[in-house]
């Protein structure tokens, strides 16, 4: 069984996330593997652990630094990595990125053999659109079982549970397929020292768009289907009134709410 897991390199949410002058996300700041993709890596690894003869390939699309996301996945236990890096990819939107990812899966199939399962996170922590997984599934013409909080693979059948607000659904798909997983599904492992050392020797393939049979205008600025017109920093909230409870904190709170006509 061959599993591809998509990993995204994102600006650290705990750091200073901002935009550059051309209204794209400033990616010069410290970045890391998107937290929500750690669950995807973990799930891919545990599915592989339970299968006979399975391999996990971590795939990223992004600038030079983005390889760190693949490295983290390799340290966690993925067998090999693929990094698609190309100058014309800068400022790619969701659809462009999905086209590149779908072509990357096809390239892996050409080079290595069939990719039975693609595993992704539920969203990135920067763009947080949640559309890339289904776009890739649509482009590859394979079923997508999305927002899984439980996944089981039995032969050619993948079953997932998806927890919605009012109901839980059980979804079934047949391989080859794509699943996206939520942060409820598992507890991602930390790379062990051994894992970190071993990762350095694992194969890491680098592709440019031409290697994938794509032209430069499939993504990036040239392939953009959306345009950002304006970015403004939200003004900081003006400081509010803070009191210390002296036995009447609850009453004072309600007085404030009443003053705001909220009760």
């Amino acid at each position: 069984m061959r599993i591809a897991v998509f990993v995204k390199y994102v600006p650290d949410a705990a750091g200073d996330r901002s935009f550059t002058d051309d209204n794209t996300v400033d990616r010069s700041v410290d970045g890391l593997l998107s937290e929500l993709d750690e669950y995807a890596v973990e799930e891919a690894l545990s599915i592989a652990d339970d299968a006979d003869d399975a391999e996990v390939i971590a795939v990223t699309v992004g600038p030079d630094d983005a390889v760190d996301a693949v490295r983290k996945a390799l340290q966690m236990g993925a067998d090999s990595g693929v990094h698609v890096v190309d100058d014309s990819l800068a400022a790619s939107d969701a659809l462009g990125t999905s086209k590149v990812l779908a072509a990357t899966v096809r390239k892996i199939e050409e080079e290595e053999g069939p990719v039975d399962l693609v595993v992704t996170g539920m969203a990135s922590t920067d763009g947080s659109m949640s559309v890339v997984p289904v776009q890739v599934a649509e482009l590859l013409g394979r079923p997508a079982a999305t927002f899984a909080s439980e996944v089981s693979v039995d032969g050619q059948t993948v079953k997932i549970r998806r927890d919605g607000d009012t109901a839980s659904q059980h979804i079934e798909v047949t391989l080859p397929a794509l699943v996206s997983v939520t942060d409820q599904i598992n507890e991602p492992r930390y790379p062990s020292f051994k894992g970190i050392m071993a990762a350095k020797k694992k194969p890491l393939e680098e592709y440019e768009l031409a290697d994938l049979g794509l032209s430069a205008d499939v993504a990036g600025t040239a392939g953009a289907t959306t345009e950002v017109l304006e970015v403004t920093a939200r003004p900081p909230r003006s400081a509010g009134e803070i009191i210390t409870d002296d036995g009447d904190g609850g009453t004072k709170l309600v007085e404030f709410l009443a003053g705001q006509k909220l009760v």
């Binding site: 209204n23 920067d126 950002v228 017109l229 970015v231 403004t232």
Partner: peptide, 13 residues
Amino acid sequence: FAGGYTVRGKVTQ
């Protein structure tokens, strides 16, 4: 970005 920025944009294709 956690409500830190407001972005205005449009679909061009």
